[in-house]
Design a protein around this nucleic acid. Sequence first.
DNA 1: CAAGGCCATAGACCG
DNA 2: TATGGCCTTG
Length: 761
Amino acid sequence: MQNLLHNLNEEQLAAVTLPAQSALILAGAGSGKTRVLTTRIAWLIQTGQTSQSGILAVTFTNKAAKEMTARLSAMLPINTRGMWIGTFHGICNRLLRAHFKDAGLPQTFQILDSQDQLSAIKRMLKALNVDDEKYPPRNLMYFINSAKDQGLRAKDVDAADDYNRKFVELYELYDQQCQREGVVDFAELLLRTYELLSRNQPLREHYQARFRHILVDEFQDTNDLQYKWLKLMAGPHGAVFAVGDDDQSIYAFRGANVGNMSAFEREFKVENLIKLEQNYRSHGHILDTANELIANNSKRLGKNLRTDAGHGEQVRIYESISDLAEAQWIIEQVKNLIAEGWGRSEIAILYRSNAQSRVLEHALFSSAIPYRVYGGQRFFERAEVKHAIAYLQLMDNLHNDSAFLRVVNFPTRGIGAKALEQLQDAARQYNCSLYAAVPYVAGKAGSSLNAFIKLIEGARFESQHMPLQEMVKLVLERSTLMTHYQSEKEGADRIENLEQLVSAATLFVSEEGFGLDAPAFLGPQALASAGTGITLGDGIEIIDADASLVTLMSPLSAFLSHASLEAGDNQAQAGQDALQLMTVHSAKGLEFDAVFITGLEEGLFPHENSAKEEGGVEEERRLMYVAITRARKRLYMTFSQTRMLHGQTRYNLRSRFFDELPEDSIKWLSSKVVKQPNSWFAHPKAAWVETPESGNNKIAQGFNRQGSEWRIGQGVAHAKFGEGVIVNIEGDGGSTRAHINFGKFGMKLLDLSVAKLEKVG
DNA sequence: CAAGGCCATAGACCG
DNA sequence: TATGGCCTTG
């Protein structure tokens, strides 16, 4: 115990040893929040206040959950397997597997990732003959997900007009389709669990009594449903230990509600609010810069980071002529750093949007500096892997129409659009799955469909007693996926990924403790007894930490869940000493000795779209705050007068955020006013500002050219298009064009030297 | 059924 | 600039 608390500072110690009541920990960047969380858990267990089965710890990412588990194992001599530490989705999956019957789900329910969800929606719209121009699948998906994220079923959504009523109706039909097919989307995992527990009193009380200590990481990222979920889980007596930082709330766009922090304080009757303001990461000038910037936000819970590390170096600011020049300058600096002995992997280049990485990558490639780009496609999202997974899904749940359609004709086996149309008609007529509808299709189409069914059933039968990894191999062969890619010219990578899928299965089986030779399917007896808590035959038991709950899950089901819930590495592999490139969003939670924040221009950072969103600029500022606080020792900020974007040159103003930094902590490496080759100049003041109410007031200062002062935000009148407003101005020295929004005539791109425009207002 | 051409589009992200 | 979706054509 002594050594457990030994290295904590006063604030951390206070947080770790709080009484068993709900508490809010405001944990600043680099203040040791993960440490506080894990030590809190260890302390609760070690002091006998709870056993390890009484703890529920929730995170947003698998990475965070893994890290927490690993640190905890290092702290306590306990087996962390079976502990309830996981993501919201992972924990819900676990609960739904254990209580699938009460939740109204089939035992082999499968999880749709967002790709699957979108294709399920497209498929539904097609079947219903809905005009997908009028009701775009993406919009419907967004509509459904945000309703679910607020805990609303279709019947709970108030439709303002006919258009919205259609969305509500489609939402309802989508849910029915999912239910029929035995699939759940991500939001459904949470909503279904929430409904299960609110409806089922004994179950609710069981878990409320069990989890007396609930710990939540990154609380500022919770959405409305997650908040309600936590409230339900905690019940009247549970203690929720919420750790978060309102200044690092950067996910409003996916439903996160920072307001949950103050709601939590109020509704959970928080008596202890502890601020962790001691920063162990960054030098003084860097922290001062972050503090001063974020002070420009209103509605903060209030927090100021401090450090004992001393001022350190000032923040270096550099202005360049072009994005190319910016990249080259950065590379020069990187080379110098490396020559001075800074580790390559301790240097990060951050950008606001992915499109910015191209120039940087190109320049890095030319100078032969090893680098790694975060983001991009993940393992289980690759097409070939998804195909293989779909075969497995279909074998585990024959009624998964999404999986059926994905592979019924891949690799091609002569089942075309006509055949599928017949099949879908039959399925509709008999209200059954595509699989079940096959016997109703006659003729040539029927026989090729039958051959496909034989393929799936044959593979299913033969792999019955096979361990998972053998089953995967069999599927790759039987489906002819392997031979298909072998004959493809550029299939080598895909083959490699498919081989890696076999390794992933092997690894999964051994890590989850199934036993390498346990069959992938549950035996028939196990299936029959599922949900009773008793296992028979060769069923696989997943025994919970307190042994009170036995979940029956086949290795195959578990692996398929794993594939959906952990799409795999989305980030650069560790190992090689390489420079790190990533967006600011994906840098959250990481830290580096030296950081470059690039492209600090109006329209880019803050991003132009943020002007239209309520509170958008404040979120951009928090994003900037996150970026700054990634740096330990050295921080660079760069911006460029011109930038290639979508194939045309844009002339941007420097970011308003420069005006919000403390003079003493920054150092301009380029002179403050750089002469422009073509009379453009960066305006020293912010181009457009957000007013708290409207949030989208573009008061813009553009540029000045040949005495005609067209500026962004200028009202204009045109003979044909009527009145409009200048939204953006661009040019390449030769001609100058303006994007003008003419309302009902839409957006026009006009040459300012040609178009006859008058100023209005 | 697959390949090739045309057009629109362009933000950040995890499960 | 580059990618994805859709349509036409072989």
